[in-house]
Write a protein that binds this DNA or RNA. Sequence first.
DNA 1: CCACGGATTGGCT
DNA 2: GCCAATCCGTGGA
Length: 201
Amino acid sequence: MNLQKKLPRKFYTRNVHIVAKELLGKFLVRKIGRKYLIGKIVEVEAYDGLVDEAAHTYSGRTKRNEVMFNEGGFLYVYFTYGMHFCSNVVTGKLNEGKAVLLRALEPVNGMEQMAINRFWGKNISAWELKDLTNGPAKICRAFGIAHSENGTDLTGEEIFILASPRINANKIASSTRIGIKKSVDLPWRYYIKNNSFLSRK
DNA sequence: CCACGGATTGGCT
DNA sequence: GCCAATCCGTGGA
């Protein structure tokens, strides 16, 4: 794994479904001081802007969703259920309002720190690897992603994604998206088949 | 101004 | 499997 080999802007400015599928198998990196938190992306969902009733941007620009209208390659972080953050990779061109929700990672490096971030205060010795980042809000907890990370440029030094070979199409599965009430039949959740760090089967 | 409910999680039945 | 937790953006009055 080459920490210098960051995905460039042009990776992100393409079609949201292409980017979603190509993000599978790539490595999300958070640099904190000299330490690196790293996880392999194994599950995502595409949110397709104005043609997608389930997308936050469907009804137009608001203060909450404005980062999602950037061109590709920025991090859109939102707060929900009164306690959770979720992160998205913005895709496409300026003002399209499209993004890929990061739903599950396979921890690769910095697991001790992820466990501290996720379970602060309680039972810190009993953490299990597969419970660190197998859900969209868990990723944010483990990686310390919250309000202040909203709008982070993924071509920068703080949070970025490493280039790595594309996952073979026959190892990728799709399904309907999880937890939404609109556009429930669209098969826009993509994940690596049989990976044990998925948020769901 | 106020009421509603959410791209979730974890604990309890 | 069910449901409470706990903010705050959003939309309707």
